[in-house]
Design a protein around this nucleic acid. Structure first.
Length: 503
RNA sequence: GUUUCCGUAGCUCAGCUGGUAGAGCAAUACACUUUUAAUGUAUGGGUCUCGGGUUCGAAUCCCGACGGGAACACCA
């Protein structure tokens, strides 16, 4: 251990020795039987205060929280001679401990107060306290502590963030530190934890909604020998016993479809996917997608279902379908606008590319100063055009429909429009949130599409798909008509919690 | 990957045109029995990210590396 210890870290280690001298275990094994939380006590006292016009009356006489046992992390220490104030933070929030030498050391031995409380405790330590709830002279709900126990000593100092009148002092704000040491960020910064909890709530709402509609949650392989189901570069790894290369999945689509082949009518998975590409506020190499596949449905049904589900998520989380994201007000009230990709391009560029050849579209891209090259097929050019010129304009939830077949190798041909497929993407706040289609279930056609991908790969497209022969075999056994969707859970959570960064 | 900005105490930051470092909070000691960013007094704390170069002298100027932020690109 050649780690450099700061002065403060050395001091804290010395305090461990001091604890040993006093016979106090700074990391006790026995459970500390908590019977109340900070917010619970604060709320209860608020209610009593509201109902009781006589503020002089001690709270404990109202028979509330006479014997509180709580625990938490020390967030501020304030010793005022023979009285000390310690603010602790538990799972719910912060509450103040009021400690006087007389209460905590009724006998002659004042060690607990003079040594432990005044000298050995530090910010960041976990302590347990027993006592009664009351309100101090200055009106702050506190615990009058009769017994205090060290539950865990912290050896590194926490950043001390102070706040007054909404102004924050010495904020822990370095983005590197915040993302790398998320645990510190969670302890010290308000709101981070809430965002985590909201995301969990969002996932639960979605899961409940799917379950209520008869969907079955499944798990499919993360390590795959052929990464399929999306256009992206995979991470590679290696299986030692088999001595074969393996890939971390870029999508779980092909495995969920295999389950449809196997006879499930509706399967879903919250799938952690890995894509070997850049990071940004909107991109994370490791991210979560909800995918689900429903037999006997088509992409039109899927649009109806998706907008109902998202409206429910928004209203469950905010009480209304309308929410504020950054500077935008976004309304998740169904139905959402629907527009074809060609109409979208026409709307924002003035060019109708629907009947153009690859050459002509290439020229349009050039005329709009887009960076395109000859390795790009027609599908990729159109995708380029859309993401550069249109994507950012769709703030309100909008389904972009009917993509060209070239950019959708797993999608069924459009029932009536030549050269297109039955696919939609959902754009919200200028970002893609979901991607869905009527799934291609014709094995001959699917094989031909894969072969197209191989040609693209030979032209230099390193994101083109591999041929998955086992998947083709599954389709040959027969897959019912199916509609599937992938929803970016991290991006949806960004919207629902009004966060600017995906991290 | 490109452009751009940044890296100084545990945290947040100051340090002008080169003269080997400062503040607040945190820490240590003392005082104080109701504090709210508590206060007062005193004390300690730094390989100025790293490596080269210019110079009598570099936190400061130059080059390079490493780490990071932001934008763009990649990414449906």
């Amino acid at each position: 251990m050649s780690e450099h210890l700061s002065e403060q870290e050395i001091v804290r280690r010395e305090k461990l020795a001091k604890f040993a001298e006093l016979g106090i275990d700074p990391y006790p094994a026995a459970m500390w039987d908590v019977n109340a939380t900070a917010v619970e006590i604060l709320d209860a006292v608020e209610k009593i205060k509201a109902a009781n016009p006589n503020p002089e009356q001690p709270i404990h006489e109202l028979d509330i929280y006479k014997d509180v046992c709580i625990a938490g992390r020390i967030m501020s220490l304030n010793s005022k001679g023979k009285v000390s104030f310690i603010k602790i933070q538990d799972n719910t929030g912060r509450i103040q401990l009021f400690i006087s030498v007389d209460n905590i050391c009724p006998g002659d031995d004042k060690t607990m107060y003079n040594e432990v409380i005044k000298h050995l405790l530090d910010l960041g330590d976990f302590v347990g306290a027993k006592g009664e709830a009351f309100v101090t002279k200055t009106g702050e709900t506190s615990i009058r502590v009769k017994e205090l126990k060290v539950l865990s000593k912290a050896l590194k100092p926490m950043p001390v963030v102070k706040e007054k009148d909404g102004e924050v002092f010495d904020a822990f704000s370095d983005p590197e530190q915040r993302f790398r040491q998320r645990y510190v960020d969670l302890v010290v910064n308000h709101g981070v934890k809430e965002t985590f909890l909201k995301r969990t709530q969002m996932v639960k709402t979605i899961r409940d909604f799917l379950n209520a509609n008869g969907a079955v949650e499944v798990d499919t392989p993360v390590l795959q020998s052929i990464p399929g189901g999306a256009a992206a570069r995979p991470f590679t790894t290696h299986h030692n016993a088999l001595d074969i290369p393996l890939y971390l999945r870029i999508a779980n689509e092909l495995y969920l479809k295999r389950l449809i082949v196997g006879g499930f009518d509706w399967v879903y998975e919250f799938s952690r996917n890995f894509r070997n590409e850049g990071m940004s506020r909107k991109h994370n190499p490791e991210f979560t997608i909800l995918e689900f596949y429903v037999a006997y449905k088509d992409y039109i049904w899927m649009m109806d279902f998706t907008e109902r589900m998202l409206e429910k998520v928004a209203t469950d989380m905010h009480g209304t379908s309308e929410l504020t994201v950054g500077d935008n007000k976004i309304d998740f009230k169904a139905p959402f606008r629907r527009i074809t990709i060609y109409d979208a391009i026409k709307e924002y560029t003035g060019h109708d590319v629907s009947f153009m050849t690859e050459e002509q579209i290439y020229d349009v891209c050039k005329s709009l100063h887009l960076e395109v090259d000859k390795t790009m097929g027609k599908g990729k050019l159109i995708d380029e055009l859309f993401s550069a010129k249109c994507e950012k304009n769709f703030i309100q939830p909008t389904f972009i429909t009917d993509y060209p077949v070239e950019m959708s190798p797993l999608t069924k041909k459009h029932r009536s429009k030549e050269g297109l497929v039955e696919r939609f993407e959902l754009m919200v706040n200028g970002q893609e949130i979901a991607n869905a289609y009527s799934e291609l279930n014709d094995p001959i056609e699917q094989r031909a599409r894969f072969e197209e991908q191989v040609k693209l790969m030979e032209r230099g497209d390193d994101e083109a798909m591999f041929i998955d022969h086992d998947f083709l075999r599954a389709l040959e056994y027969g897959m019912p008509p199916t509609s599937g969707i992938g929803i970016g859970i991290d991006r949806l959570a960004m919207l629902m919690t009004n966060q600017a960064s995906i991290q």
